[in-house]
Amino acid sequence: MTDANAGRERILARLRAARAAAPLAPPPAPHAAGVFAPIADPLVRFQEECAANRTELYQVDAANAATCLGDLLAQALAPGDGAPAYVQDAPILRRLLAALPPPLPARLRWSSEAAVGGDAGAAVTLAEALVVRTGSILVSTACGGRAASVLAPVHIVYAEAAQLVPELDQALVAARACAAAASMLCLITGPSRTSDIEKKLVLGAHGPRRLVLLLAR
C-alpha cells in the first residue's frame, strides 16, 4: 500500500503542470544495432570478455562437468574451516554433485533447506542468461535467494552454451520475464571489485573474490 501523504499530491500536481503537451510516446527502445559494433564470433568474444573482467571460464562437456565442479569445490572449501557450500537446489546440480567424493557432500547446503549464510565458503548456482557482448551472467533470486550470488567468497555458476545471448537487449527480455516472479535480478560481470584506493583494482571488495563459470557445451 502506498503511504498516503499530502506531499505526493502536491508533487504530482507540479509534475503534471510541467508535463509536455505531446502524448506519452517513448522513442523506440534503443537497441544495440547501430550503437555497438557487430560481434564476429560469439563464443570467442564471450571468452575474451570473461578474461577481461576476470570471470574464470571453464568449458566443460557432459563427461567432465561433474569432475570439474568437484575439483572447484574441493579447492574453494578449505579442509580446516568447515565452511559450507550453498547450492541451488536444481536437478542438474543434484546430478552433477551426486558423485562428489567425501567429505565434501557433508558440506553442501541445498537452497531448499537454507538461505545462504555468512558462513558460506562457496555458492553454486545456475544462471538465467549469459551475455556475449559484456561477458556477463544474469542471475535472479531463483538461484537460491538474493544473497546466493553475492555473500560467498567464491561463486560458481553452471550454465549451458545455449544460454548465451549476443546482447544486453536479449538478456533484458529474459530479465523482464523473470521479474514477474523474482524480487531481485542481477547482471553480474566478473568478481566483486573496488578501485577506491589510489585507483588500484582489488578483486573481492564485498562480494565474491572469484567468479567461476562452468560453461557446458
Binding site: E49, A52, N53, S111, A114, A115, V116, T134, S136, T141, G144, G145, R146, A147, A148, V150, L168, A175, A179, A181, A182, S183, M184, L185, C186, L187, I188, T189, G190, P191, S192, R193, G207
Partner: peptide, 21 residues
C-alpha cells in the same frame, strides 16, 4: 568500464517463494 560489475534490479520485498531478502 565496459559495464559495471553488478547491475541489480529490485522490484519489491521478498516474495512468498523466496528464501531471503
Amino acid at each position: 568500464q565496459p559495464i559495471t560489475c553488478y547491475n541489480s534490479l529490485i522490484g519489491g520485498p521478498r516474495q512468498p517463494e523466496e528464501r531471503d531478502g
